[in-house]
């Protein structure tokens, strides 16, 4: 074997194996999002949550798919009657069909949860981004504001505010949405603020700024996409929490009222007659819990996928 041969042969395999030498160099690089999606797909909690969420949303949008009974048709003669073929959960104190009321109850919960969360998300987006992006006295001022709102236990403030906003004529729908929206933005704002601060110090943002990108462009093209994942997680969990708080406010008598069909109202009413008839309490309570659980599980699963540190 001549010397020349051995050298040329030495070159080729060395060059071929070089990329494999590096740490995992042979695998193609994956983005965080696709990585997270791959993890999500394998997580059974995510699938249970997703199925439940879809089910509840369909129930809220098209309750007629699930029942043909009229939830507001009540007859006192059927008071606390047991389950039958037409009303599988039986009848409540007023003699209304518990199954129909439970199905129709999803609409108010989901609608209030969604609207309140959108409002709260918008507030936290603006406040969090302003605090994080501008820093300085804007940040200091907004941070104190967040501290003050956090200093008031949400439900207590909600009780006062919901009472104040509503007058006895209306259904209480809008006041509850406003109350929840105004009081629950602090977590989202904090997440947004720290994400923006983290993103701001990244090299690519500095580079974009040097290239002359304006405030708005920087914010929406470069900073926001990176803050999106934790923000979505917070909002998903908040959606579940808002539905729970709505039910609590309604239960206490400062939320929905009157002829509205809502799980909170049904639970509140049935809990007074729980010794006589537990079913009108149990069913709306289970549906409410399942709905809240679905959103919280969904948020949890997404967070775990994006934040693999704690697995």
């Amino acid at each position: 074997m001549s010397n020349v041969e051995s050298v040329t042969q030495a070159e080729t395999p060395a060059a071929a194996t070089a990329p494999n030498g590096g740490d995992g160099g042979a695998e193609k690089p994956r983005s965080l999002a696709s990585d997270a999606w791959r993890d999500l797909r394998r997580n059974w909690i995510f699938w249970v949550a997703a199925v439940l969420v879809v089910l509840v949303v369909v129930m809220a949008a098209f309750p007629g798919l699930f029942t043909s009974a009229d939830p507001s048709f009540c007859q006192l003669s059927r008071q606390h009657a047991g389950p039958s073929g037409s009303a599988i959960f039986g009848y409540d104190f007023q003699g209304c069909d518990v199954y129909a009321r439970t199905i129709y109850g999803a609409r108010n919960s989901v609608a209030i949860g969604l609207l309140a969360t959108l409002m709260s998300g918008a507030i936290s987006l603006v406040i969090g981004m302003a605090a994080g992006y501008f820093g300085g006295w804007v940040d200091a001022l907004l941070a104190r504001g967040i501290d003050i709102v956090l200093g008031i236990p949400t439900l207590l403030a909600a009780i006062v505010l919901a009472r104040r906003l509503s007058d006895s004529e209306d259904s209480g729908f809008l006041p509850v949405v406003l109350t929840l929206g105004v009081l629950t933005w602090t977590t989202g704002a904090r997440i947004m603020r720290s994400s923006v601060i983290a993103a701001k110090s990244q090299d690519y943002v500095a580079a974009a700024r040097m290239l002359g990108a304006g405030h708005a462009r920087l914010m929406f093209r470069h900073i926001l996409p990176n803050a999106a994942a934790p923000f979505v997680v917070v909002l998903t969990i908040l959606l579940g929490a808002n539905i729970a708080t709505e039910a609590t406010l309604t239960f206490l008598g400062v939320g929905l009222r009157g002829d509205e069909i809502s799980w909170g109202i049904d639970i509140s009413q049935a809990s007074q007659f729980v010794r006589e008839a537990p079913a009108p309490l149990v069913w709306p309570a289970l549906f409410l819990a399942a709905t809240v659980l679905a959103f919280i599980m969904l948020g949890d699963a997404i967070r775990d996928a994006f934040d693999p540190r704690l697995r």
């Binding site: 039910a247 809990s271 309570a285 409410l288 819990a289 809240v292």
Partner: peptide, 9 residues
């Protein structure tokens, strides 16, 4: 996921 209005009653 269990709101207090579910849990307590």
């Amino acid at each position: 996921a269990l709101p207090i209005v579910v849990l307590a009653p």
